[in-house]
Design a protein around this nucleic acid. Structure first.
Lengths: 236, 236
DNA sequence: GGGACCGTTCGGTGGGGGCCTAACTGTGGG
DNA sequence: CCCACAGTTAGGCCCCCACCGAACGGTCCC
């Protein structure tokens, strides 16, 4: 066999296992998944999925983000996703992959809004990051940073940053339920503290979940989003 | 693992072996290769390549044409070729695959023109099929057939078909050196007989190779092609 | 700090698959 | 008709690798 052949075979080998292929197809939704979720989906043990993820990551098909005790993996880039789509297109039927975790906790208060350490998470946290990005308060071009407008906006809200040694002012944090980044760091903490102090959000006893009031719109969120964040009349 | 994952893995598994990958890359040139050639290229035994080709053909990635004691395989279609290109593009360097057989016999009389059973083959045979196709004498839309113009052309040349029971009038035959179809069947045989009778081509003793004269242009071949078919002054 | 949970490492097991040699079938050329 | 050659079948070898259970760090929540 030739060297090129061996190289091509190396790529193919990553997808040549049913478990790894299942993982990649699940990741086609563009979100980041944890190792345990993938193990459950693929119906294998955690040690097994761990090895598979090692292969896929070191092979360059997947990238990972380690966060606390979690290991999030997602497709390395749009090109690999495209390639995967092309291969998947060869299979006749293609059913939508079941996103078990999201489906289960979708209407849960936990998924709507909660604290993540000292900052806001859930749909609320992600929506806040989105809104600030849209309004030019955050610059993602090189890592993540506040723009001059962003700093002015914080001052307008009366928010002061707690400067602590070694802690970055603004950090992005992958949201557990939304799988998209929300805001952490000193800014994230200050925003959360601010919202709690003014009762824009309140802790729901027995967990990290938050109850959201209409006042959070003061963060500049779209009206539609704020409505979705508030529980219906029957819910707590 | 899921059913879709298993399906995707099935496709990937075909390419997950260095030998099979090498075969597929070689076949990217669009030509048909024999099993032995591929075995030589991939540096494995003939039994081994036979099994690999079974897998690739039954998997739908390759199609085969059995012809006498030869087994020609080529990529199933342009879509699979495209997919393969996409995968191959992931590998950094891609060297041109060495087409050993063609390189060796390229300037050989055998490759230029010869008989194949009772019809013309080699560059001559393929060029003849091409020329007839270009002039609307052959219709490839459903199998292969002579058009009305084609039948008239044969009559003009003074060619009569030997009608034999069970033999199709016109058949395409995969050329050994060119890997593209030339003409067989009653028409192919008649054309060959005609060319030999009028000394447009003559047998080179000791083989099936033919010497080509300028008269073959009467078949309607392009001038450039006829020139290439004739050996240089030093050659036999 | 205690308990729960996520993930990893280690050792062992079983199955699958790629490869070969030897022997056989079938085709084609002279 | 006989030899040469393309390809296949059969049998066996061996390595790779997917998988699991058990045990072990790390992290987070209360």
């Amino acid at each position: 066999m030739t060297a090129e052949g061996e190289e091509l075979a190396g790529w193919a080998r990553m997808l040549a296992d049913g478990t790894r292929a299942t993982v990649c197809l699940a990741l086609l939704d563009g979100r980041a998944w944890t190792a345990s979720e993938l193990a459950r989906l693929a119906k294998v043990s955690r040690p097994t999925i761990s090895e598979h993820l090692n292969q896929l990551v070191s092979g360059g098909l997947l990238t990972e983000v380690r966060q606390g005790r979690h290991r999030y993996v997602k497709l390395a880039g749009p090109d690999t996703a495209e390639l995967l789509e092309g291969l998947a297109a060869l299979t006749p039927r293609r059913t939508e992959v079941a996103n078990s975790l999201a489906a289960v906790s979708k209407r849960d208060a936990f998924a709507r809004a909660r604290t993540c350490y000292d900052h806001l998470a859930g749909k609320l946290g992600v929506a806040l990051a989105d809104a600030m990005t849209e309004r030019g308060l955050i610059d993602w071009s090189d890592g993540i940073a506040l723009t001059a407008e962003g700093q002015a906006w914080l001052e307008d809200l009366g928010i002061e940053l707690e400067v602590r040694r070694g802690r970055p002012a603004l950090r992005s944090c992958l949201d557990v339920t939304e799988r998209r980044p929300h805001l952490a760091g000193a800014v994230g903490a200050a925003l959360c503290k601010h919202a709690l102090r003014h009762d824009w959000v309140t802790h729901i006893p027995g967990g990290r979940a938050l109850k959201v009031t209409g006042s959070v719109q003061a963060f500049g969120l779209p009206v539609r989003v704020v409505k979705e964040l508030q529980p219906g009349p029957r819910e707590t």
